[in-house]
Design a protein around this nucleic acid. Structure first.
Length: 703
DNA sequence: TCAGGCTTAAACATCC
DNA sequence: CGGATGTTTAAGCCTG
């Protein structure tokens, strides 16, 4: 990504860029590894120059081949201080060697991907990101460098800086030459560049790139240092350490260089540059620091022939951005990383942007740095996200496991689900945490947090759950957790009788054929999309077994209805005399308290059971109402059968429930009935294929 | 330990 | 005749 953009910026050196990008990526990986190891940046690196960079790349490449050798073994096994010094010396030597190469614009050892001609650039581009960490790791395995060591390193750095100056001189000359050539070209019209000119330009670019990379490297280094706390320590110390750092700041020198080349910068800028460089060393802030350094560098847009090509792009971008508040402009200040130029108005800002931050190498480099920063942040974010996920998963598992009482959980979940059920589309379900709830059911599916609770009752427990607590049975959970059950092959914690009843009650006609009941099961529960023979048999068995299910002969055949009285009759027995039940009812009521108002209102209107979800209008509310109704029914059952409702204070719910619940037809055209109640909109599409996976195909409803 | 409820499996009958 | 639909029985499990 970064690499690509970088490639674009280089018209002449695209090949180089490509090579760099590839290598860059590679290096980046290694860099991440290093960082992940917790290595710390070192001061010495800050003085890196071109040769240094190249050398680093070599090292990196070596590391890539044998990572352990460098990062792990060396850094760990050797004394940190000695190791750091050793590495520093080594770097110095290598730098000297490589500098020679660089001065000759010959590519040192580099990535094989890079074109031979433009190697230096690519190397430079690659090195900063990767090398720095490696070096840091080696040199500053820990932040334990002693002042003496630091001094030594700094001295070395100074030496490097001298070398760098030489390089810059060279660059300067090259730049001038290039500029002249470009000017000639511009004046002479658009004529194909002569090979020689091209070569020079390429070399210039390469060199410039390298310098920029050095700058980046330093910035990165400084950043790392700051993060490590090394820089903060220095301020308190004699300026000795700081001095070298400041001097070593490539930005300053680069700025000077550019200044000389372009002659566009004033003394004021120079001062600001020094200032910024100082800032960098002392206060460098993660993201801004890099660019700040870059900022110091004077634009040399005019010097670069490539600019003419890319400038239009930039302008168009600016125009585009003009319409909105520009992210790079705020409070009258240019927010370009490191640039704090004051722009009185947006126009002047645009002008400034186009002139000072045109698409040149510097801007590209800055962009690169910024991208690096962003990448690092993203990495960090990703890690933190991962961590968060792990934490949530962990907590989720724990939270679900300990809970033994299905009732409260279920209620809670119901409430939560009520929200999701109505909103969530089938697709949304899958993303719900699955692993934590896995233990709940033998099936593979992953329940959501919410559903998980209700899932506890799955398996053997489920009957107890629905029966014993009798309260929140089917409708509530079925309706509110339906989204979950639809997608998760988890056995619903409801008895067949409850489910059948629910299916029938949800139907517009309050009656269903057996096949329709089957369909409802398969549609509502992923679990029932398997082993059709088994559960269908069970359904039939239950229909026949329980008196509450009444078979009614119809013109088309037979349909099944629910005799509520009978249905509730059998429950009271279980419930009666069971204090826990009452307790549960109350508890459930408590959980549903927020809903009570609406429910009560609803119920008040229909003194009897007959309020329908349809009348509620709001699907969610409908769900809740449905759930509440179920609970109420349970409570009422209890009361009625036992005649024990004499204890008024026992259950607040009693005051507001209807004794019987009968739903009126919701959707006239609804032949699938059940879901329409709660999630009419949700279910339809998936079921078509849902049905097909079961062992036994389920016939479509036929009216 | 027992009763009751639920599930599962299976046999059987009936109907289309 | 085969499959769907219904009915019935039995066994096993779970919980209070």
């Amino acid at each position: 990504m970064m690499q690509e953009s970088g490639t674009e910026t280089k018209s002449n050196g695209s090949a180089i860029q490509n090579g760099a990008s590839g290598g860059n990526h590679l290096l980046e990986c290694s860099l991440r590894e290093v960082r992940s190891n917790g290595e710390t940046p070192s001061v010495e690196i800050g003085a890196a120059d071109l040769a240094h960079l190249q050398q680093q790349q070599v090292l990196i490449l070596a590391c890539a081949k044998a990572p352990h050798a460098l990062s792990a073994e060396n850094s760990i096994s050797q004394p940190l201080s000695s190791q750091a010094l050793q590495v520093a010396r080594q770097l110095l030597l290598q730098q000297q060697q490589q500098q020679q190469q660089v001065s000759g614009l010959k590519s040192p050892k580099r990535n094989e991907k890079q074109p031979a001609l433009q190697v230096p650039v690519s190397v430079a581009m690659m090195t900063p990101q990767v090398i720095t960490p490696q070096q840091m790791q080696q040199i500053l395995q820990q932040q334990v460098l002693t002042p003496q060591q630091l001094q030594v390193l700094l001295q070395q750095q100074q030496a490097l800086m001298l070398q760098q100056q030489q390089l810059q001189e060279f660059y300067k000359k090259q730049q001038e030459q290039l500029q002249l050539q470009l000017l000639q070209q511009q004046h002479a019209g658009k004529q194909p560049k002569e090979p020689q000119q091209q070569q020079v330009a390429t070399q210039q670019l390469a060199f410039q790139q390298q310098l920029l990379q050095m700058q980046q490297l330093q910035q990165q280094h400084l950043l790392s240092l700051q993060r490590q706390g090394l820089l903060t320590i220095q301020p308190g110390q004699p300026t000795l350490p700081l001095q070298p750092l400041a001097q070593g700041m490539i930005p300053t020198e680069l700025q000077q260089l550019w200044k000389e080349v372009t002659g566009s910068h004033t003394a004021e800028e120079a001062a600001s540059n020094n200032h910024s460089s100082l800032d960098l060393s002392t206060t460098c802030v993660s993201s801004s620091a890099p660019s700040k350094t870059s900022l110091i560098i004077n634009p040399h847009a005019s010097t670069n022939g490539q600019l003419s090509v890319h400038t239009p792009k930039r302008e168009s971008l600016s125009h585009e951005e003009h319409s909105h508040s520009h992210p790079l402009y705020g409070h009258g200040v240019c927010k370009w990383p490191g640039c704090e130029a004051v722009c009185e108005d947006f126009q002047s800002f645009l002008k400034h942007l186009n002139s000072e931050h045109a698409l040149d190498d510097r801007s590209t480099a800055q962009c690169r740095v910024q991208m690096q920063v962003v990448q690092q942040l993203e990495l960090q974010l990703a890690k933190d996200k991962e961590r968060l996920q792990a934490m949530m998963t962990h907590l989720h598992v724990k939270s679900t496991e300990p809970k033994a009482t299905p009732q409260p959980l279920n209620l809670v979940s119901s409430v939560t689900l009520s929200k999701t059920a109505s909103e969530a589309s089938p697709q949304s379900l899958p993303h719900t945490p699955t692993t934590p709830t896995a233990p709940i059911t033998p099936v593979t599916q992953g329940p959501s947090v919410i559903t998980t609770t209700s899932m506890h009752n799955v398996g053997p427990i489920r009957r107890r759950y629905s029966d014993k607590y009798n309260v929140p049975i089917s409708s509530a959970d079925i309706a509110q957790n339906q989204e979950f059950y639809k997608n998760a092959e988890v056995r619903p914690p409801f008895t067949y009788a409850s489910l059948i009843r629910q299916a029938i009650l949800e139907s517009p006609e309050k009656q269903l054929t057996l096949n329709e009941i089957y369909n409802w099961f398969t549609r509502m529960f992923a679990y029932f999309r398997r082993n059709a023979a088994t559960w269908k048999n069970a359904v039939r068995h239950n229909l026949s077994l329980h008196k509450c299910f009444v078979r009614v002969e119809n013109v088309k055949g037979a349909v099944w209805t629910v005799d509520e009285l009978e249905f509730q009759k059998r429950r009271p027995q279980k419930i009666s005399g069971n204090p826990s039940l009452i307790k549960n009812i109350q508890t459930s009521h408590t959980y549903c308290t927020p809903l009570n108002a609406a429910l009560q209102a609803s119920m008040a209107e229909n003194s009897i059971p007959l309020y329908t979800t349809a009348s509620m209008g709001n699907p969610t509310l409908g769900n809740l109402a449905n759930a509440m109704r179920e609970e109420l029914n349970g409570a009422m059952e209890h009361t009625n059968s036992n005649g024990s409702d004499s204890s008024p204070g026992r259950s607040p719910m009693q005051a507001m429930h209807p004794v019987h619940v009968k739903e009126e037809p919701l959707d006239p055209d609804e032949n699938e009935g059940p879901l329409s109640l709660v999630t009419t909109a949700n279910h339809s599409p998936d079921f078509d294929h849902d049905r097909d996976y079961e062992d036994e195909p389920v016939n479509e409803d036929i009216e």
